[in-house]
């Protein structure tokens, strides 16, 4: 599955991390299927750095800042989000408000699963 950077010259650190993370994680067929079923845009905010992830079925586009209309958002400090990416239990971070989500909860939980290096159950 292709991960595209819209406006690569203006992309921020978080966008680059997300690109690399999704590129390695989406080699699994299970995760690719999950990503294909995600639709719309999610705003990702790590320590104030904003990236919009837009799911287009066969590809995902990352845009610096707020791009398309987003109906879901996820925010936290960069370390917390990277911890989750590395397999930390995201539920724990959500319950302790180190990561906050808003909007379509199911979509956001799927995104967290896509970003996490833990095995999908």
């Amino acid at each position: 599955m292709e991960i595209k950077l819209a406006d690569p010259d203006k992309m921020n650190l978080v966008g680059y991390f997300l690109r690399d993370l999704l590129t390695t994680n989406l080699t699994s067929e299970k995760r690719q299927k999950m990503a294909r079923h995600l639709k719309g845009a999610i705003l990702f905010n790590a320590s104030g750095m904003l990236v919009t992830l837009t799911f287009h079925g066969e590809y995902i586009e990352l845009h610096p800042g707020i791009a398309n209309q987003t109906n879901s958002k996820i925010a936290g400090d960069l370390n917390a989000l990277l911890d989750v990416a590395l397999g930390a239990n995201y539920l724990k971070y959500l319950l302790t408000r180190k990561i906050k989500i808003g909007g379509n909860v199911f979509k956001l939980l799927k995104l967290l699963k896509l970003l996490s290096k833990s095995k999908l159950t």
Binding site: P8, D9, K10, M11, N12, L13, Y16, R19, D20, S47, G48, M49, L50, P64, G65
Partner: peptide
């Protein structure tokens, strides 16, 4: 330096929110 490691060969822009 971080952006060059990510493949941006000549990074000239930094978002104010970035380190």
């Amino acid at each position: 330096v971080g952006k060059m490691l990510f493949g941006n060969k000549r990074p000239l822009y930094r978002d104010p929110s970035e380190p």
